[in-house]
């Protein structure tokens, strides 16, 4: 405490920075680093009936997942289901939340009510959300059926989560409902930093709403959009698990058997811990690919210029 900030700053920033980072690093290394390394180790092992056989088989589990006749078809199916879900869920969340954010940005009365309402889905815990939608979709007593029937849209109660063509979208709908607010807030934050004068200038040029959005708003919003895409992709690949667990359990057929669900089954139902761990690593790699695409494809130069300017 005898040294001034200035002195410390100049003398050994690195040591000082690491001293500050130490607690955070410790948490992450102990609770994530160690289990992560351990799970990579597990993925190299051979298991039979829940017990390691003692053979280290290195990448055989990975190879099995990609080529064996028993696992590979399920893996590819799950991969496809996961990609379908992720693309639709991320796109829908981004479009809907951007739309809502633009409306909130209009700064009209009732704006606050909208913000407050948005807090609700965000505040609902995942498992509660799954239970709630399960009850809404119920094919025998559910309120969705009841409502559509009352209005006259349907003649007979129908099933969403029991229909292979609809089940994934039923899950996606419940998922989107919960995750729209999160991104909306991020977009509102982004929009609020765009000066009103920019819009006024654009309106002077008599540009239409769509043109203003495309030429002015969207480019200025790009960094936020990137952030939302990254976060939402990570979420969409993982956070749907509770919904699958409660609503469909991977069915009907393989229609909702996502990678997260398959990993859960491999590890905990089939006690194939090695294969489960290997699949989890592959899922992480998929995320990295997605994130790389976002960061590179969406204007890398512009982005780096912006962050440097900030």
């Amino acid at each position: 405490m005898t040294l001034t900030f200035e002195q410390r700053h100049h003398r050994n920033t690195t040591a000082f920075a690491y001293r500050i980072l130490l607690p955070s690093l410790a948490f992450v290394l102990i609770f994530i680093g160690y289990p992560l390394v351990y799970s990579i180790w597990i993925s190299f092992q051979d298991f039979k009936y829940g017990v390691p056989t003692g053979n280290v088989i290195w990448f055989r589990n990975f190879l099995d997942i990609l080529t064996s006749s028993t696992v590979a078809p399920q893996f590819y199916n799950s991969l496809l289901v996961t990609l379908k879900f992720t693309v639709v869920a991320v796109a829908a969340v981004v479009i809907i939340s951007l739309g809502i954010a633009l409306i909130i940005n209009e700064r009209f009365r009732g704006n606050d009510l909208l913000k407050l309402a948005l807090l609700l889905p965000y505040a609902i815990p995942g498992p509660v959300n799954a239970v709630m939608w399960n009850w809404i979709y119920d094919p025998t007593f559910g309120v969705l059926n009841g409502l559509l029937y009352q209005v006259g849209f349907i003649k007979e109660y129908f099933t969403i989560t029991g229909n292979p063509d609809l089940a994934l979208w039923g899950i996606a709908f419940a998922y989107i409902w919960k995750f729209v607010p999160y991104s909306t807030f991020l977009f509102v934050a982004g929009l609020s930093t765009i000066p009103q004068s920019v819009y006024e200038a654009a309106q002077m040029d008599c540009a239409g709403t769509w043109r203003i959005f495309r030429k002015v708003t969207l480019p200025l919003l790009m960094p936020v959009l990137q952030m939302v895409l990254v976060i939402q992709t990570i979420f969409a690949l993982l956070m749907h698990f509770g919904l699958v667990f409660v609503l469909t359990r991977g069915g009907p057929g393989n229609a909702t058997s996502t990678l997260a669900w398959l990993i859960y089954n491999e590890s905990f139902t089939f006690t194939q811990f090695g294969r489960g761990a290997a699949m989890a690593i592959m899922l992480s790699l998929i995320m990295i690919v997605f994130i790389y695409l976002y960061l590179v494809v969406l204007n890398p130069e512009k982005r780096s210029a912006r962050t440097q300017g900030a």
């Binding site: 920033t13 690195t14 000082f16 920075a17 690491y18 980072l21 955070s24 690093l25 992450v28 609770f31 994530i32 680093g33 160690y34 289990p35 992560l36 351990y38 799970s39 597990i42 990570i234 690949l237 993982l238 698990f241 997260a260 990993i263 859960y264 590890s267 811990f273 489960g276 761990a277 989890a280 690593i281 899922l283 992480s284 995320m287 990295i288 994130i291």
Partner: peptide, 26 residues
Amino acid sequence: FWGSSQVFMGFLVTRLLPAISIVIPM
């Protein structure tokens, strides 16, 4: 500081880990 961006990326990469895969080691 030395290793700043590497450590920062390291932190971020932990977000890419499916919880289900580290439950048993945990």
